[in-house]
């Protein structure tokens, strides 16, 4: 009896897929790319990218050949997780790593976001790492659908999926077009992901995502600040100023917003205003204090020898 229970415990998942709502089964229409030796990362990016190309009319920036050459390390015979994410970003997508649990996976699939997972098809002592896009699930059958190998939307029993997924610490990412937010996103983590996109040179794409974030979390000071900086980076100083002012409305002594407002005033030649803004800033943080001091010095320099500032 105990043995039977133990056996059952091994075969069924501890955390069954949700049956009780109207999304008890999901099957996303993700185009299928047949497996090509060693190139599952590239194929997975391509499949999810073409899904979004149809759904949201985003044009992928790279061809399949370019994705291949950006992801494969010939001697390792595969692709590192970091490079999968970097290549997906280079393809014009925001990459968000999910919390390592089945609930996050289900939540993303339920709102139409395919998830690329890393699994180990074998044992931990003889690993066979593999990437595949998860395209849906069926709570009735307790299966997970994915473009795993030769067959589109192959149904893998949940227990098997969890076993092979567990070995990668349940690694999974969503690739989203700029302006879309993951169902399970937290503001801080989402902000970091958008910032990665911005740093890789995709300023317009990042701006779209920051804007979407400021709609979803309107009172989040950090997002307003990043959005302001994105506008600043695109030389839209009035918009940038508007965002920094919004921050002061929520947090009147916010040092970063005050510093950047002072910087804008300085660029406009309003030195008194710049100084009075800086004097309102309050911080205990040494790094931020250093930033404020640098701006203070800039103001002094401008006082001594007025420079013609570049007008934006």
């Amino acid at each position: 009896m105990t043995a039977a229970l133990f056996f059952l415990g091994g075969c069924s998942s501890k955390n069954p897929l949700p049956l009780n709502n109207n999304t008890s089964s999901v099957k996303l229409d993700v185009p299928f790319v047949a497996p090509r030796s060693e190139l599952c990362a590239s194929s997975s990016i391509a499949m999810v990218s073409s899904y979004w190309q149809v759904k949201a009319q985003v044009l992928p920036r790279l061809t399949l050949e370019e994705l291949d050459s950006r992801t494969l390390i010939p001697q390792k015979g595969g692709t590192l997780q970091i490079e999968l994410m970097a290549a997906a970003r280079a393809n014009g997508f925001l990459v968000y790593q999910l919390e390592p649990n089945i609930d996050a996976l289900v939540a993303e699939l339920s709102v139409g976001h395919p998830v690329i997972v890393l699994v180990n098809r074998s044992f931990s002592w003889a690993p066979l790492w593999h990437y595949a896009p998860v395209t849906g699930y069926d709570a009735q059958m307790q299966t997970v659908l994915s473009h795993f190998a030769d067959e589109a939307n192959e149904a893998v029993p949940l227990a098997t999926f969890e076993a092979i997924w567990e070995r990668s610490q349940k690694w999974g990412v969503v690739l989203l077009p700029p302006g879309k937010i993951p169902a399970t996103a937290t503001p801080r983590k989402f902000l970091s992901c958008v910032y990665e996109l911005e740093k890789s040179g995709m300023l317009q794409e990042a701006l779209l995502s920051y804007k979407a974030a400021s709609t979803r979390w309107p009172e989040n000071v950090e997002i307003l600040f990043a959005l302001g900086n994105a506008y600043y980076g695109l030389h839209q100083l009035n918009k940038a100023e508007e965002m920094y002012r919004k921050i002061l409305f929520l947090d009147a002594v916010n040092p970063l917003a005050l510093n950047n407002l002072a910087d804008i005033s300085l660029h406009k030649g309003k030195l008194e205003e710049a100084e009075s803004l800086l004097n309102q800033a309050k911080t205990d943080d040494v790094a931020i204090e250093a930033i404020l001091n640098a701006t203070r010095q800039e103001i002094e320099k401008a006082r001594v020898s007025p420079i013609k500032y570049i007008s934006f």
């Binding site: 194929s43 590192l80 066979l128």
Partner: peptide
């Protein structure tokens, strides 16, 4: 181009752990 698209932290991680990081591939066994 590949290195340029990595963040500093990512590049450092790869530099240190490239031999042990998992590399997903298609092949079965």
């Amino acid at each position: 181009a590949r290195i340029a698209s990595m963040s500093d932290a990512e590049a450092t991680e790869i530099a240190h752990k490239i031999d042990t990081l998992p590399a997903g591939a298609d092949a079965g066994m």
